[in-house]
Amino acid sequence: MAKTFKLVFEGKLTGTNPLEEVKQNLAAVLKKTPAAMDQLFADVPVVIKTAADDATAAKYEAAFKKAGAVIQLIEMKRRSDIAAGGMILTNVETVPGATIVEHFGLVAGNTIRAKHVGRDIMASLKNLIGGELKGYTELLKESREQAVERMANQARQLGANAIVNVRFSTSSVAQGAAELYAYGTAVRVE
């Protein structure tokens, strides 16, 4: 998955050009009036762009460097990373590249979801022509993420920073509703 960056300018210069020249250069690069540059060099850091992909970030970095200024690239966390809250999840017995120092035992999270009528109608239509049911795919994916989040929360309360040997399982509890279950062993790694 491609990385996303937040581009922040903190007023740092590379030191090769004098301040006035940098301001002029940047005004040309950002297509702004020289007066607006004072804002850029004010006391607070200025966000140049909120969500830039790899290529855009590299382009800005090069342009700022050429102008004689340094732009900060802050990597934005993916939503799935935030959901797990920095918890390392693996489905093997250890965390490869790290050592387990403490075991906390089993942690689990579940969620039960029912599909709604709209999706059901779409589904029965799709059952005529076949093919993927995007709505269900999304629904189940989101639900599973929630189950993982609950499991991660439980592990966090125990003081763990990783969950190893994670397993998923699905069972239907009632007609039209499914339980999604995630479980694993909470550990602390170094």
Binding site: L89, T90, V92, K126, N127, E132, L133, Y136, T137, L140
Partner: peptide, 30 residues
């Protein structure tokens, strides 16, 4: 499997990944 592939490699990052798909059957196949 996982053990056999990891003899002397330096692992920088390990993370759980998953993917899912829901596919419906068509009327003829039913």
């Amino acid at each position: 499997f996982w053990k056999a592939s990891m003899t002397n490699a330096v692992i920088l990052k390990a993370e759980l990944v998953s993917g899912n798909a829901v596919i419906a059957v068509d009327y003829f196949k039913q």
